[in-house]
Nucleic acid binder design. Structure first.
Lengths: 331, 331
DNA sequence: TTGTAGGCGTTATCAT
DNA sequence: ATGATAACGCCTACAA
């Protein structure tokens, strides 16, 4: 049987209340009993039952991390950031994903908000509507939204427009007249921001945006990259640079396809990706790309949520992080 | 304030006990009250307080997943397997990592075993000694060890010796006389198994193992791959094939370095990796490798632990999964 | 400084 | 079929 406060109390000849106070480091305990109790606790190898404690304090000391998809390296990196910072923190991380679930997102949010299983949540993902997020505000569950600006909840995100702008300007600066842009349908919000940055950069250089040079792919995969380069080159052979906010895997697919088509990268075609995944260094030529500060986002998120939970109003409501433009061989 | 059983009870003119029984689908409730209570519960948007329930039932309905390192794609894939199967299951996943923690592994295990926070644990990682695992048996916390055979606890793992043997035989079958082997110091147990498979394959073909052809690297990184090829080629230029149980990143590093050194892969040098990471398809030539069934391991692990927790003694104590040899361009 | 008593929201065992 | 009542293990006033 597990050892409880009572067991210690009995041995020490005191009451469970006293033991509780000692365990929790409360003041006004005589040095004698404190030491005695601590000693016995150690002997008995006592650990508090966190469930019982949670019921009494109405705090679970757990935070829920909701991710859209564990298969995404982007998400994983953020999770890493959360966990590694979380080391200094006494909150347990519970993992939930919203893909292919039997319950939909709203139901999950609802449940998490009401079951009292967690004290707060970190929500990764751009694919959730403000409306669905309302539940956390309504139930006053502390929440940090990651990777997307959010009007009704605190959030930490990257300056996607800025990142895209920098990349595009770089390409234009290299003398490219026709810079195509490949976006991904799936991610709605960041795509819009990146597209905006692309447009701004063009306009800055007196080049109006040409709708025809914007291509859409279904998903961030190599295969889609292969296909889209075909499409681009057959229809617009004059394109000499491609900016790929859709993601690095698409960019890698483009580079591979270029080789097959006998197009030399970067000489005849410059390619810039988005994300900086591990593969960006593997492909040859290695991929110039817009790196997102994923670890940092996770780090901010966990710190922000903990601050909230501990009542430290860090004051930070929104944190915008900057991307970093990584120049490699593909440009 | 959160709505509780009592609130429903009051409204329905019954006792909390009755409501509890209805919520939990217990028998012997009149259809009338059942319906009434369910209706009220829905109106009030009632969700049970899982903490209170946990205290009463002495079950948290959570399982802890202990990972060595979230940065490892190997670990992540297993985690994915766990989570995706977990969808059909009413257990919450709590994530713990054992790297760079303020408490060491034994302390973590101890705490998890005694805090009653989780009902069972899935432990990923080959780097833990049997001794440290004893705590779970001693405290009778259901536990599944993943990616390593374990004598004192149930486990699911891959046939590393078999995978290595197949890979080595393949190389020998291709006519390679001198097959070097690059292992990684860090992972102890699987390394030994893979090395055994390598040796068995050699002996099967009447080639005794040459200690000099076994090379060690510190870590599974490209840089170590670069370095080790240098080492191999300067000391043993007669080597025409390298089997790299150390991992795909090392193998990729070797391929890259080969290009720099003007060695053609696979013509002058065949390379076989281990793991099948995403980058294996990106590198050119793409990497022949030994794929581990990571998702499957996660899948088995979660099923096994749930079976245990539900009292279904699935009978499975140990599950050995087979690797799959993936032939690509590097051989 | 310590003990007493009540409560946190459920479940479970009796009665009725 | 339902109601009392007592756990579950801990925390927190308040009293002593």
């Amino acid at each position: 049987m597990a050892v409880t406060l009572k067991d210690i109390a009995k041995r020490a000849g005191v009451t469970a209340a006293t033991v509780s106070m000692v365990i929790n480091g409360k003041p006004n305990i005589s040095e004698g009993t404190r030491k005695k109790i601590l000693k016995i606790a150690k002997e008995l190898n006592y650990y508090p039952n966190v469930i019982a404690r949670g019921l009494a304090t109405r705090k679970s000391n757990a935070i829920g991390v909701i991710v859209p998809n564990l298969a995404s390296s982007f998400v994983i990196r953020i999770l890493q950031g959360i966990k590694s910072t979380n080391r200094d923190v006494d909150y347990t991380v519970q993992l939930f994903d919203t893909i292919g679930q039997k319950e939909n997102e709203s139901q999950l949010f609802q449940r998490l908000a009401r079951e009292r299983r967690i004290d707060g949540v970190i929500l990764i993902g751009a694919l959730v509507s403000d409306e669905e997020l309302h539940i956390f505000r309504d139930e006053s569950v502390p929440c940090i939204v990651v990777a997307r600006k959010c009007d009704i909840l605190d959030s930490v995100y990257v300056d996607n427009a800025g990142g895209a702008k920098e990349a595009t300007q770089y390409l234009i600066g290299k003398g490219h007249e026709k810079v195509a842009c490949v976006i991904c349908k799936k991610q709605n919000l960041p795509t819009a921001d990146r597209l905006r940055g692309y447009r701004e950069a063009l306009e800055l250089h007196g080049k109006p945006l040409t709708e025809e040079l914007i291509f859409e792919v279904e998903d961030d995969t190599m295969a889609h990259g292969n296909a889209v380069l075909n499409e681009i080159k057959t229809n617009y052979p004059e394109v000499t640079a491609i900016f790929v906010p859709a993601g690095d895997m698409v960019a890698i697919g483009i580079i591979k396809q270029a080789k097959i088509m006998g197009i030399s990268v970067p000489n005849q075609l410059a390619v810039v990706g988005y994300d900086d995944i591990p593969g960006a260094e593997i492909i040859e030529p290695s991929l110039t790309t817009v790196r997102q500060p994923k670890l940092e986002m996770g780090d901010y998120a966990i710190n922000m949520i903990v601050d909230k939970l501990e009542g430290r109003e860090s004051g930070i409501k929104h944190k915008e992080l900057q991307t970093k433009f990584i120049v490699r061989e593909s440009t």
